[in-house]
Design a protein around this nucleic acid. Sequence first.
DNA 1: GACCAGGCACATC
DNA 2: GATGTGCATGGT
Length: 224
Amino acid sequence: MSTEKLLGIYSKLYTTFGPQYWWPGNSSFEIMVGAILTQNTNWANVEKAILNLKSEKLLDARKLDKLSVSRLAELIKPAGCFNVKAKRLKDFLNFFLKEYNGNIGKMRKIDLNILRRQLLEVNGIGPETADSILLYALGKKIFVVDAYTKRIFSRHGIINQKDSYQQVQETFMRLDSSSGKSTCKTIDRWVKLFNEYHALIVRLAKEFCLKSKPRCEICPLKGM
DNA sequence: GACCAGGCACATC
DNA sequence: GATGTGCATGGT
């Protein structure tokens, strides 16, 4: 079925591009901030915004919490939609400090589904941002779906174009149901696979699937 | 100058 | 529930 095809595509991407070392960032907190800043935004612009926070030594939950929204917006300007994102960051910080006292370790101990629901309740955090935080900042076993994933895998007939976020996610997460056991070791393996898979999809899309100039003829997945 | 980028919330039908 | 729109910078 599609599980073999999904694993086939994964290994093709991995042998083509190698490990992607996602998520770029030196700490879980930086990853969470980046996940919000990158919404509908090129990563290079997010990096500039994060650099602004770093150079002011403000990449810290409590310090950011003390900033005014307008000052925060000023600092994250390069990431675009800065007024919206400044508010979203503030709402997230409020949640992070109130619920977890700004403690990543405490957050990591919470059950995946509970944490996911909590994140989705925060204004400005939708499914993709929540799952990026869960997978890349907290090491939870969840697959991140984005617009590229839908575009590429519906073209390959593995999902339907109209599938919801959840449906696409389930298709990918069914990959691990065959493994049966859920020891720490196998969980780590799936976290690693979901981590690389999403990153590889983004890499592939950027190089071969751009809307205006698709390069299907030389795509590594050609013929698969 | 148009189009796009590692989305989301909200309004409207 | 499906579709459209605002948010907004910076690279191609």
